[in-house]
Design a protein around this nucleic acid. Structure first.
Lengths: 312, 312
DNA sequence: TCCGCTATTTGTCCTAGACAAATATGCATG
DNA sequence: CATGCATATTTGTCTAGGACAAATAGCGGA
């Protein structure tokens, strides 16, 4: 009755394509349809679901709001306008963005990659790499994320920011690396679990370790737990540093850490950190709330292990 | 009857964890069990599958062989030894590896990240960035991939190689970038589809465009098709460059390209390339078989569009 | 205000059948 | 002998609704 004809509002997508673009699993898409009546895809001649892009757009919006703490049942029936309103409330900054963040957002809106990169590089030079990696950089990343949830930026602009940020951090790291550190201690192995595709947190952590003069090896993102343990043996790592962004469910982070602790060499400490909310310490696993804690922790490690290469 | 007791050979994994580590979908895991009798996971008290790590290891091996062209039904019943034999046949290099590749493999086996990076950086300096990005680099990547299929390297060593390779390429790119290119033409937007997490091919392509003096903006990996189109408008892109590794099913690459062609600005050309086997040209989409074709293609673009900023 | 218990919500897992898409095979033709 | 095409097989993804664990909210008491 009230169902307006929605066909022909753009291409129709299969459930697999919607899973890709929305990040909601096929199971979830089907169970929402059963429970809430949304999404309500069309069907092809073989009864397979075909999602109009308007519904996909709403699903993506719902996904963002759920990640931010809303519950599916409460918001699934809201209209597109109401959802947009929630998004705006969400990204409202606590106490105004910094002038640096304003500048970054301006560059992103103009889609000016080159100046954005120059600006970020300038920030590193002016404030120093340490302050950039611990304070300024994370604040910028958060401001960009917030602007995105407010709907002021599109995903591709966030991608653009991430790319430039990574480029700037990488080149700063290799500049610091000039002073060789291969025989330094502690030997740090960095990585993320397979669920975690975000390289930015990992790179900021690497920056901190490099600044402390540690011997760093990064495995990059999405390394299976068993491989991290194997790499730890091969590298003779003293510390395994794992990065978790907010998208990783705390439960998965915890169980992954427990598994890693079980199979990693005993002499290697496990240090975990990142924006993931429910991250808690467990036996043999340290949790870092802030990147600036890494420096003191490395110093503490060194005084603990000052006797020899191997701990007591 | 012949089922040996396999419990307690390491931690047991849920179907979701196996999907992560093996890359086989839950649906596939269940249907293989039904059809071939493998895998044959244990069950917990709620009848949920629990995979012993020996079976997961075999699944990962099967996955690699299938990616390389074997058929599931033919190899699923083979023993671990027979599968290992197939892997070795697979990775047999056509005509011996280069001395450079030997050096790289040696460094990887010793897990010596720092020297590996130094060696790669030295190669760039000695042979020049162009030769490195088109010839030497891809050959090294292939040699590492082959060594991995032969079972001589572990995944974490491949990760390590990729990390160092990316670091070296990035710093070379930013060195070239010193000469500002923001107002240069063509304006190139680079990215990959959501199915494609590999950054390396994209980075090599970016290197080529930067060397040609194009104004490059990379969105990084895994950008949804609709966002690539939106970014193309914002950036005023002349060329959209998409990278596809072998893991992307050709069908998905083709349909994604068709969709992109439909929604991207008409004035933007679409250039696709990479190791993906079934990649074929389609109306409005050029396919590049080799990175070294990029240079001439850019020159051709320039002579086509020499009149004004906008094409005819 | 904080903690612990119970109720509700929500995502994931289950089965087994169906069929599309991808690949292989057989056969005819140049 | 190679090449193209039609048919057969293999393989992955989709379907349904029920079940239940895990996550979260709400309530009551200290």
């Amino acid at each position: 009755m009230t169902t307006r004809v929605e066909a022909a509002d753009g291409p129709l997508m299969s459930i697999a394509a919607v899973q890709r673009d929305s990040g909601l699993s096929k199971d979830t898409l089907r169970v929402w349809e059963r429970r809430y009546g949304f999404p309500a895809p069309l069907r092809d001649e073989h009864d397979e679901r075909l999602y109009p892009s308007s519904q996909v757009a709403k699903l993506i919006l719902l996904r963002r709001l759920i990640d931010a703490g809303h519950r599916p049942g409460k918001i699934v029936d809201l209209s597109a306008e109401e959802l947009a309103g929630l998004m705006r409330d969400l990204g409202r900054e606590p106490q105004g963005v910094s002038p640096e963040a304003r500048e970054v957002l301006k560059r992103l809106e103009a889609y000016d990659a080159e100046r954005l990169r120059g600006f970020l590089a300038g920030l590193v030079v002016r404030s120093g790499l340490r302050a950039f990696a611990t304070e300024i950089g994370p604040a910028l990343a958060e401001a960009v994320g917030a602007a995105w949830s407010r709907g002021e930026l599109e995903i591709h602009q966030e991608h653009l920011f991430t790319e430039q940020f990574i480029a700037v951090l990488r080149s700063a790291i290799s500049a610091v690396l000039g002073a060789a550190t291969s025989r330094a201690h502690p030997r740090v192995l960095l990585g993320t679990f397979p669920q975690e595709p975000h390289a930015l947190g990992l790179l900021m952590a690497e920056t901190m370790f490099v600044l402390e003069g540690c011997a760093c090896v990064s495995l990059g993102v999405q390394t299976p737990v068993s491989e991290i343990a194997a790499a730890a043996r091969a590298h003779g790592a003293d510390i395994l540093a794992l990065s978790f962004s907010a998208i990783v469910p705390a439960s998965q982070a915890q169980s992954g850490l427990a598994e890693l602790r079980a199979i990693a060499p005993k002499r290697a400490e496990i240090w975990a950190g990142g924006a993931c909310a429910g991250l808690r310490p467990q036996p043999g696993v340290l949790v870092f709330r802030s990147l600036s804690d890494i420096g003191p922790a490395v110093a503490a490690w060194r005084s603990r292990n000052s006797g020899a290469g191997a701990p007591a």
